[in-house]
Deep mutational scan, measured.
Amino acid sequence: MALNTPQITPTKKITVRAIGEELPRGDYQRCPQCDMLFSLPEINSHQSAYCPRCQAKIRDGRDWSLTRLAAMAFTMLLLMPFAWGEPLLHIWLLGIRIDANVMQGIWQMTKQGDAITGSMVFFCVIGAPLILVTSIAYLWFGNRLGMNLRPVLLMLERLKEWVMLDIYLVGIGVASIKVQDYAHIQAGVGLFSFVALVILTTVTLSHLNVEELWERFYPQRPATRRDEKLRVCLGCHFTGYPDQRGRCPRCHIPLRLRRRHSLQKCWAALLASIVLLLPANLLPISIIYLNGGRQEDTILSGIMSLASSNIAVAGIVFIASILVPFTKVIVMFTLLLSIHFKCQQGLRTRILLLRMVTWIGRWSMLDLFVISLTMSLINRDQILAFTMGPAAFYFGAAVILTILAVEWLDSRLLWDAHESGNARFDD
């Protein structure tokens, strides 16, 4: 018995066209964080690309023209004298008006014999932002004059995390709450300039795509075929072959399989920071003279006294001054041990922890910024005066060393310790 099946006739004509040209192939790229070699397709503007294995951002879609970056830099340069030299806060102490600005706080630190601690604050609040705007201006002028731009481009990517104007702005709020127990506070004209400078700096850093600047100024022929001998440069993120001198053909720094002496430098910085954190938390970090009496505060006791007036601000200072430094030390110690013992479990967790400490590390400088600003506000000789204690130097040095330890660690070593050939990683 035959089955009668109805015929289905399409209502619209289906047209099949042959592909007349070869589909576009992607360029081969190595991930600078996990060293995976993959094919990167062509990316349009405002599109980002991520590593298929570790999800690290390979290409950032946010990109401004150099002219727009230069305009932002010149605007920031105009704001800087007002943000640093004009009063941020006014207080009335014992019937006398006192003005506080950024430069005055750094000068008070240096004047009291601790120039190293003052230079830490100076670099993060004044030096690094000033280098940022002058570097962008150098790129703008240098591109037109045919100057060598490689050193500036190499420095810009590392400079971003040292620009800490946003953290200093939080420190202004913390210092205001600490001082309000002794005097009446009012915002100064410099505060508005400083807030504007923070906003412009944040926007500029978020749109400063150094890798795209490398592509514009020093374009290189990408690798179009897969080759395990391809290496990625950690300076400019170019994937290719080393030249005859073993250097990256684009930025001219040595092109090595792994960062040289990464573990040794990381261990040295980490152990030194552990040693410095002990006096930083045991010795007094601030000293207040009130009517001839002397009151010393460690980091913890200062947080407890701050909690009596504002528990939320005390929580912020606790996280930045105690929780973050010790968390960074514990995480980095764990990561280094996992590399030495070739741990194969929990790779995803370790990668996330490394990215976390990379982002939060700079916030530990908050305590030094609060001390710097408070020193310029309260300084009335023996009637009422505020000065920093010996722990300030140890704390600042420990924070900087932990930042350097994270920067010096080559994250690809975590993958080397893991089993080879993993296309995915999980716990």
Rank of each mutant, 00 (worst) to 15 (best):
P6E: 08
Q7D: 10
Q7K: 10
I8A: 11
T9H: 12
K12P: 11
V16Q: 14
I19E: 12
E22F: 11
L23Q: 07
P24I: 11
P24R: 14
D27I: 09
Q29I: 13
M36A: 13
P41Q: 11
P41G: 11
Q47C: 15
S48F: 14
Y50I: 15
P52C: 08
R59Y: 12
D60C: 13
D63A: 15
S65E: 04
L69N: 09
T75S: 15
L79V: 08
P81H: 11
A83W: 03
E86R: 14
P87D: 06
W92D: 02
V102G: 05
I116A: 12
C124W: 01
V125Q: 07
I126Q: 04
A128K: 01
P129S: 03
V133I: 14
R144G: 05
L145M: 12
M147F: 05
V152S: 03
V152K: 01
V152M: 01
L153S: 06
V163M: 11
V163G: 05
M164E: 05
I167G: 05
V170N: 02
V174H: 02
Y182V: 11
Q186L: 11
G190M: 02
L197H: 04
V198D: 06
N209F: 07
R221E: 09
R221T: 07
A223P: 08
D227A: 07
D227F: 06
K229G: 08
R231S: 05
V232G: 11
L234N: 08
G235V: 02
G235R: 02
G240W: 05
G240I: 04
Y241K: 10
P242R: 11
Q244D: 07
G246T: 04
P249K: 06
C251F: 00
P254K: 02
L255V: 02
R260C: 05
L263C: 07
Q264E: 01
Q264M: 02
W267Y: 10
L271V: 09
L276A: 05
L277Y: 02
P279A: 14
A280F: 02
L282W: 10
L282D: 04
L283F: 03
S286M: 03
G293P: 06
Q295C: 08
T298L: 07
I299G: 10
L300Y: 13
S301Q: 07
I303M: 06
M304S: 08
N310D: 11
V313I: 08
T327K: 13
V329T: 09
I330S: 11
T334W: 12
S338A: 14
Q345D: 13
Q345L: 14
L347T: 09
W359A: 11
R362C: 06
R362Q: 07
R362Y: 02
W363A: 05
M365W: 03
L368I: 09
S376C: 04
L377Y: 15
N379C: 07
R380K: 04
I383A: 02
A385I: 04
P390M: 12
A405T: 05
A423D: 15
A423E: 14
